[in-house]
Amino acid sequence: MALKIRLARGGSKKRPFYQIVIADARSPRDGRFLEKVGSWNPMLKKDDAKRVELNNERIAYWMSNGALPTDRVLRFLNEAGIVTREARVNPTKALPGKKAQERLAEAKQKADDAAAAAAAE
């Protein structure tokens, strides 16, 4: 059985509240779980102590038994100092698309041609 440490959504419409649970990877998001090991309330301020609550001992136990955290839960565990999360950097994300790069190259070529023509005169 593949275990995941993941979020199960609760709360009302437009007022989310998440439980951090240990669940089988095949079970639905809000379905059956084995144990509740924490909670996350995104409606609270980021510096509020009750925003993320974790049961460190139980999380360590389940991770030793093969449970893998999802990316969002891994961020919480990294902030708590339980696990180290590698920073994910995508340097190509900020680059313009292929067509925009072609337009920039054309504009640069036209500017270079115009500068060369002005210098020749």
Score class of each variant (00 low, 15 high):
Gly38Met: 04
Leu74Trp: 04
Ile20His: 01
Met63Arg: 11
Leu68His: 10
Ala94Thr: 06
Asp30Gly: 01
Lys98Ile: 14
Gly97Ala: 05
Ile59His: 02
Ser39Gln: 07
Val89Ala: 08
Ala80Glu: 10
Val52Met: 05
Asp47Phe: 04
Met63Val: 05
Pro16Lys: 02
Glu102Asn: 08
Asp112Arg: 11
Ala117His: 11
Ala60Tyr: 04
Pro42Gln: 06
Gly66Asn: 10
Ala49Asn: 09
Ile22Asn: 07
Lys45Asn: 13
Glu86His: 09
Asp47Ile: 07
Thr92Cys: 03
Trp62Asn: 03
Gly97His: 03
Ser12Gly: 14
Asn41Leu: 02
Glu86Cys: 08
Val21His: 02
Gln19Gly: 06
Ala120Ile: 05
Lys108Pro: 04
Phe76Gln: 00
Ala118Arg: 14
Pro96Cys: 09
Ala100Cys: 06
Asp24Met: 06
Ala23Leu: 01
Lys36Ser: 08
Ser12Trp: 08
Ala120Phe: 07
Asp30Ser: 06
Ala100Pro: 03
Asn55Asp: 14
Arg72His: 11
Phe33Met: 10
Leu77Arg: 00
Arg75Asp: 14
Asn41Trp: 01
Tyr18Ala: 03
Arg75Asn: 13
Gly81Gln: 08
Lys110Asn: 11
Arg88Tyr: 11
Ser27Arg: 11
Ala118Gly: 08
Arg9Cys: 01
Ala80Ser: 12
Ala8Thr: 00
Glu35Lys: 10
Lys36Ala: 07
Pro16Val: 05
Thr84Gln: 13
Glu79Trp: 03
Gly31Glu: 01
Asp30Gln: 00
Ala114Phe: 10
Asn56Gln: 14
Ala87Gln: 13
Asp48Phe: 02
Ala115Pro: 05
Leu77His: 00
Phe76Glu: 00
Glu79Met: 09
Ala119Ile: 00
Asn78Lys: 09
Arg58Glu: 12
Asn78Thr: 08
Pro28Lys: 05
Gly11Thr: 03
Glu121Val: 15
Asn55Cys: 09
Glu106Asp: 13
Ala119Phe: 10
Asn65Ser: 11
Arg75Met: 10
Ala87Cys: 04
Ile82Asn: 01
Ala107Lys: 15
Arg88Ala: 12
Lys13Trp: 13
Leu34Cys: 00
Gln19Ser: 12
Ala25Arg: 12
Arg72Ile: 15
Ala49His: 08
Gly11Met: 02
Leu104Asn: 12
Ala87Leu: 12
Arg51Met: 02
Lys99Ile: 13
Gln19Arg: 15
Lys93Glu: 13
Ala115Gly: 05
Tyr18Phe: 15
Gln101Pro: 07
Arg29Ser: 07
Leu104Thr: 12
Gly38Arg: 01
Asn90Ile: 11
Ala115Val: 02
Glu35Cys: 04
Arg29Met: 05
Lys14Phe: 12
Gln101Cys: 12
Arg72Thr: 15
Arg26Ser: 13
Asp47Cys: 06
Phe17Ala: 09
Phe33Ala: 06
Val52Gln: 00
Glu35Asn: 08
Asp71Val: 11
Gly31Ser: 04
Val52Asn: 00
Ala115Ile: 02
Ile22Glu: 06
Arg15Cys: 09
Asp112Met: 10
